[in-house]
Design a binder for these strands. Structure first.
Lengths: 127, 127
DNA sequence: CTTAAAAATAGGAATCATTACTATTTATGA
DNA sequence: TCATAAATAGTAATGATTCCTATTTTTAAG
């Protein structure tokens, strides 16, 4: 008996799938409480971590010091607006070639890379 | 009168310049206390932040949830060993071209990127 | 349909890195 | 020398996250 169904976990994952703005645990908590009023914050954290560990969601870490979560587990990149803080998915090819570049002068084994971009988003640039 | 000299700040920066392993604030604190026994942890944090803000050092954030600091302010990339946690400088060319790749399908303004690599370092691979 | 055991939960306490606060000390331009 | 802005030490506060525990829920098996 490894993983047991729980309504809370289902609701958390369902909510995350409706969002493409990569909410934090607290945002998930706030929203999920509408549908499940006495869910606890600990349960939200535990399930987000668990779902990330088994690969059903992705945990994203930028430099705001708060974890963000993404139901889209495909490899893709993100843009963080330094003005409004919005996190936007980028449609672009894989950057796996940069690992080869990094490996050229390195004697360890490079297995992955973390990359995100920052700047001013389209909406902020207008105002 | 904007920035005033302080012995504590000098000692912190001097220590950081002797290290190329990107220590955390706590590590800086532990070491600097040898030379300056009653420096306070808050002073270490305040000065590391200040030095980073004025560009004399660099603040690095990986996914261990703790800030690391680097006296080398030149643009360069890092490798994090997932086994021993060591952070190693990589000698490689700039990856600025990836910002062009990212910008192709994006209507905002990309001003920078954060990239680091992870895997198994040379030492860990031997054992 | 029971039932027992493992897994999950709610609620709250604990942790840990970091920042904020405040009375005191220090650096420095006049 | 002196006035004052800046910095410090020490401690309290913050905020995200994890841990703890008694209780509840899921589920496999009889």
């Amino acid at each position: 008996m490894a993983l047991k169904y729980s309504r809370q976990r289902q609701v958390i994952k369902d909510f995350l799938m409706t969002r493409k703005d990569h909410p934090t645990a607290d945002t998930v908590y706030m929203n999920v409480r509408n549908e499940y009023p006495n869910i606890s914050l600990g349960t939200v954290y535990r399930n987000l971590s668990l779902l990330a560990d088994i690969g059903e969601i992705q945990r994203l870490r930028f430099d705001d010091g708060v974890d963000h979560f993404d139901a889209d587990t495909s490899a893709h990149y993100h843009f963080v607006c330094t003005q409004c803080g919005r996190i936007i998915d980028l449609r672009m090819d894989s950057l796996d070639h940069i690992m080869d570049l990094a490996g050229r002068s390195f004697d360890g084994e490079i297995r992955g890379h973390v990359t995100y971009f920052h700047g001013i988003c389209g909406d902020c640039r207008e105002s």
